[in-house]
């Protein structure tokens, strides 16, 4: 699809999210809630005493009963719909032909771990921190934009073999 059209659709969803629910679009927040719900399910007392989990579990409501989780369920449906429409619903590994699948998978896991830590420390990922922040002129969104893309460009040279 035309990238501007795709961006326009996402932008409209962003407006709708703010208008109906007062929320920005998010990604990592749903991960957080799944993690907290898991910890809470395994050991409720630990979750209550943990400074990280307790804000989400102390009210007695499941952390999974939240806007972001439902939004992400929608994202999964939407992605599958779109991929089916464009014929992209297939098992593949996206990588440069110069590296093996194993290298790519390991890099993806390490990248994921870094995102997991970064998104919790920085209060959101590209969606929740940067894009939703930029939509309301929040300073944090622009700091995040500069740091994520600045960091990306700074490290790009060292990991070029993964991609080019």
């Amino acid at each position: 699809m035309n990238p501007y059209l795709a961006g326009f659709i996402i932008g409209l969803m962003l407006i709708a999210a703010y208008y109906f629910s007062g929320e920005g679009l998010g990604g990592s927040g749903a991960f957080k809630k799944v993690v907290v719900a898991t910890i809470n399910g395994v050991n409720h007392n630990y979750a209550l005493n943990s400074a990280y989990c307790s804000p989400l579990v102390s009210e007695g409501k499941s952390p999974l009963n939240s806007w972001l989780i439902f939004e992400i369920i929608g994202v999964i449906f939407g992605a599958i719909l779109s991929a089916a429409y464009f014929g992209r619903l297939n098992f593949k590994v996206g990588k440069s032909p110069k590296i093996t699948n194993k290298t790519r998978i390991i890099a993806a896991i390490i990248g994921g771990i870094l995102w997991g830590i970064g998104s919790q420390l920085g209060r959101g990922c590209t969606s929740g921190l940067v894009m939703s922040g930029m939509a309301v002129n929040a300073l944090s969104g622009y700091i995040g934009l500069a740091a994520v893309f600045g960091g990306g460009y700074a490290f790009a040279y060292f990991f070029r073999k993964l991609w080019i």
Binding site: G111, L114, W115, T126, G150, G151, A154, L162
Partner: peptide, 15 residues
């Protein structure tokens, strides 16, 4: 965190 995520972006290729 943004710089950490930038590194994660280059390594992992997703957000």
């Amino acid at each position: 965190a943004g710089i950490v995520m930038g590194l994660g972006f280059i390594l992992g290729g997703f957000c």
